[in-house]
Structures are given as structure tokens and as C-alpha cells.
Amino acid sequence: MNLTIDHILAGISAGGQYALIAIGYTMVYGILRLINFAHGDVFMASGLIIVYLTTAMPLQYAIPVVVIATVLLGFLIERAAYKPLRQAPRMSVMISAIGVSYLIQNLALYITGGLPQTYPSIPWVSDSVEIFGAITKRVTVITPILTLILVVLLVVLIRYTKIGMAMRAVSKDFETSQLMGIKINKVISTTFIIGSFLACIGSLLYFTSYQSVTPTSGAMPGLKAFVAAVFGGIGSIPGAVVGAFVIGICENIIKSSTDFSIFSDAFTFALLIIVLCVKPTGLFGEKTTDKV
């Protein structure tokens, strides 16, 4: 164990990135009871889009365009692959999600030709700075701060706005809220739009730290964010954020030991199994009450 400030910083930064993806999982689950497997791939697609955009336009235009494109992608996936299955059993939607995930990955493989794409460096954000004697990119510091700001905004949106109230209602009871005049499709679309927006910001931060995009780069962060969402209690936004930071930091602490660094991924998934066995609802999960 040679734990240094570098490991903690890297862990907090990784946690922030996982948190932004995890929110997308947890919100969709809260409302649709669907695990959106394509979410990690939307994250990757967002990275690829900006790689191709920067060849055509300067970065300051590319960033807003990529945000819009990613949001649109998330919206279209919901409309094309999940909405037609609204009345179908939940399993069918889940299988559809897996299908979308493979579709995006293979599309990316086709477009990139399997070559890793170098992510553009964003000036200022990717400069190196010194924090507590450790040299790292500025993005490492920005990530957790930006994540917390976005999460606070999101919580405010859900607590105090009309659409937020509608979202809470839908997540409580799908059918009744429909009867009460809530436009269910609008609420679900909004959920996907918010989720994709956060995934896009997450992708900007993640790929600025690790500047290489491959068709499978969404898989691992996506999976870990999913574990974070389950750990925090799937459906709960603060839970997902706490879970993500716990996983990010623990992982990097494990990596600080040369003998155990190889188990850093195994730890994440062992944690998933333990949580599911011991406390299936996670840290902040809602209690399931069996109705008779």
C-alpha cells in the first residue's frame, strides 16, 4: 500500500464520472422499471460524435452540438425501441435495450473501423495543475464539483417543478398517474433527455481524462455506474451518487497496492453480489412492500 493523494484524487474524479452515468440508469429505472443497457453506449457514442465533429468545426461549437446530438440520440432510442413496447412485459423492453446496446456498439465499430479514436483535448480543462503536491489534469478537480452542482440542480428540478412532480408521481404508480392526466410519454421522454444530457457531460469529463474512444469504451464505465446505482439503491438519485463515489474511491485505493491492483474490477462486482445478497434495496433504496 502506497496510498497517496494522487490515488484519492483519481478516485474522486472517477466517482464523479460514474455518478453522472449512474443517474441515467437510476432515473430510468425509477420511472420505467427498466435497466437501460444502452446507456453506457450512449455515453460512448457521445464521445465518438465529438471526435468527428471537431474535424468539421471548432471545439466551442462542437460541445453544444454534441450535447444536442446525444440528447437527441437518447430521445430517439426511447421512441424507437422502448415506446412501442410500453404494454409488453418488462423483459421484452430489457431485451430490446440489450439489442440497442449491441446495435450502437457495432455501428461504432463499423464507422471507426475498429481503430481507437483520439479524443480532442479541451483547452484549460485538460491542462495540468498541481493540487496538494500531486500533478493532475484540471478536469480531475472539475469533475466532482460539476457533478455535485448538476445533482443539486436535478434534485431541485424533481422536488420543486411541475415536471419533477409528474416524474415522482409516475415512479410511484404508473397507471394511476396516467388516470390523473399526466402525459406519461412526455415524462418518460424528459427522463431520457436528462439521462442522456448527464451521460454527455460525463463523457466530456471522462474522455478528457482518458483520451481514447473505442466502440467498447462505454461498456466498463457503464457497468460500473450500474453497480453504483444498485449499490446506492436503484431508483434513488442521491444513492447513485454516493454509490458512484464509493466505488470510484475504493477502486483507486485498491489500485494503490501493486499486489492487489489486478482485483480492482473484481472488487466492484463482488460488491454488487454482496449488496444484492445482504441488502437488495441498496443504501437508499425504497422498501418494497408486498401488496395483497
Partner: peptide
């Protein structure tokens, strides 16, 4: 020599580089 292995699909090498420095 100090040997380290990383798992497949790793993209965060910060910790490994720090470990090399501390070694």
C-alpha cells in the same frame, strides 16, 4: 523490477503511474 498487471479495458492508469513513482 516491480511488476504490475492491469485488467482488460482499463482506461485509468493514473494509479499505476503513481505507484511507479512511489516505487
Amino acid at each position: 523490477v516491480e511488476n504490475a498487471n492491469f485488467p482488460e479495458n482499463t482506461s485509468d492508469f493514473n494509479s499505476y503511474i503513481t505507484n511507479a513513482e512511489t516505487a
